[in-house]
Nucleic acid binder design. Sequence first.
DNA 1: ACAAGAGATTTGAACCTTCAAATCACTCGG
DNA 2: CCGAGTGATTTGAAGGTTCAAATCTCTTGT
Lengths: 374, 374
Amino acid sequence: MAGTDLPASGWGGGSTKATIDDVASAAGVSRQTVTNTLSYPHKVRAETRDRVRAEIQRLGYRPSAAARSMQSRISGALGIELRTLGPGYHNGLMAPLLAELSRAAGIRGAHMVTFGEATQESSLAAYEHMWLTRRVDAFVLTDTERDDPRPGWLAEQGAPFVSFGRVWNDPAFTRWVDVDGGAGTSLAVEHCRERGYEQVAYLGWQPGLSPVMDDRYAGWRTACTAGGLPVDDLGGTCADDLGSVTAEALSLIDVMGGRGAVVCATDLIAVGVHHALAVRGLQVGRDVGLVGFDDSETARLHGLTSVRQPLDLIADQLVLMLHDAFRGQAAPETSGLLLRPALHERGSTRGHDDGRAATPATPTTPTTGTTNGD
Amino acid sequence: MAGTDLPASGWGGGSTKATIDDVASAAGVSRQTVTNTLSYPHKVRAETRDRVRAEIQRLGYRPSAAARSMQSRISGALGIELRTLGPGYHNGLMAPLLAELSRAAGIRGAHMVTFGEATQESSLAAYEHMWLTRRVDAFVLTDTERDDPRPGWLAEQGAPFVSFGRVWNDPAFTRWVDVDGGAGTSLAVEHCRERGYEQVAYLGWQPGLSPVMDDRYAGWRTACTAGGLPVDDLGGTCADDLGSVTAEALSLIDVMGGRGAVVCATDLIAVGVHHALAVRGLQVGRDVGLVGFDDSETARLHGLTSVRQPLDLIADQLVLMLHDAFRGQAAPETSGLLLRPALHERGSTRGHDDGRAATPATPTTPTTGTTNGD
DNA sequence: ACAAGAGATTTGAACCTTCAAATCACTCGG
DNA sequence: CCGAGTGATTTGAAGGTTCAAATCTCTTGT
């Protein structure tokens, strides 16, 4: 037995679809005329064009992405890493962002390719593989950390990339889009004031852990002082567990005397505060206002007013920047793009009910359909 | 001005990387010898092989995915739709699932491609595009609904596909992986009993809305009757807003007299129950046990015991099935694959504290790093 | 009626890889 | 010392597309 002597690849079969030659011979023209019909219609006589188009339609012809990308040396794919370990795995924003990126890329004829290693450290190997095999033209980075090795490595390889979130290593790198978290919390403070809450507290992670969170804190502080609101003893700090959140929330509520509002660094923290309010027998909205951050599913269920990141715009801009980067255009000189979030108002900041109609908490029946998650 | 007369595509540039010919001439051999060195090393003399390998290393050569896939007529990509509208957009399981799929596909030399239309209805057009351009070899379906048009269309096109979640249209279709939700809630009931809760209530969406949710309900009911636990008046039904959840939770708690446990259809519902407990002044775990579903980030923060879907296995199996489907192997005859979830135990079912040490709620400091979400 | 030119269409080449077939270099038995 | 056989390596072809250049077919002015 000689052995079949094939490499242990995979993905055998493959079905047959119409090629450009099929269309050409069916329409009685040459390859190039078909190409022209698709790309430069004005170069083709109307009569021929119609005939070719009819055949394209009939045969369901579409240019093969592989052949096309080989010819052009452009894959039309943008890579984005998804980690199965560490933070980001449960990042509730990742799926929606990816959906928006897919949409935005699609408009430009590109698509998103996800990849990821199981091991946390050797993530660069995955980038290298995607890049050297020309599977992707460029990368979208997310969850960039301080001293993140990826930007440096990509730049070294000459691989175009953009980042969702500032690249803290290198202030000279301007191809990033970020959300102005400070503007978000400022917006929240302003909103609370309008709704009649006299004091606005803040609850977030301890300073110095994350620039993003520090930013949100700063936005609260700025808006309060600008609006003549007190800040002393109203900036609370908690860890990432409910006990810590509840304890700190109770303390803040007591400082404010049970009337006021709390702006939170995340929706999850806001839910913790909501919980603390229940413990104290206070009603969210009427007694104490509450604002979350990220407008997650949790916020919706809890009727939480929450700061909403404009994921659609973010995706549009990231893809646009990548497009520019890939075409070798110069990066914007000044800085990246800082987008302003919006506030999604719900019942948790309806105000102290002076008989005035309140924004309802939009009760809905569960959506039908077989979602395997929540 | 004649005009540049180029199609309005995009993604201009493209950087130059080593090709197989570069390696060949650098090593003083022919193309085929390089291929052989990579795919059939035994066919190449050891000395030559080493020389070629050294050049491959030095030049950073990797076969171009496009050229390769054109040659083999296999793209090595698996498509998965991400919607920017409707349910699924905020499905907290999607990102982790996709990460696991990317990992699992990577092991077989494939990768995931995401796509999606902005418009909800014409989603088939996106599938058609991905398929006819041969950008993907096969598809992974999620969030299949009753009367979902996609399975039928894909089958018609001869496009291989698998589904995460049963395909309710067609019981004869067996290429699916799903989580046995009933087993999950049964597990939860059993766990609660072990921890000393005498009654176990259930709270979920109203029956008939979703087969997945009905399944979870059935699991609870089965386990209770099998274990000699009462079920009358303990199966609660709520809508998708906190008010409804809280009201129903309070009623269940009162029926149980403040001692017992509540198994919930989702983590979000469990948080609502948690909230109701706070309103009644009851302590979660010690007084009333609480189990969620999906082991989301919310569950972690709240110290909720939760049913965990084995996403890594799910992804492995989906990719494996797709691999088989693509190679034209026969589908499994009996049925799809129903995986058993596991229980991630946390403080919310620590039991009525008889002095015995309790499972701590794993308080942690927030992870560092610049996550833009929660 | 014919050269020039414009418009329409076809041919040739290249993109990079892999498979199949052909060639080359050796060793060994007769 | 030659033909056969074996192992190592090279050449040819194909896969589907697009660009550049070549060819063909008219129309128009003189």
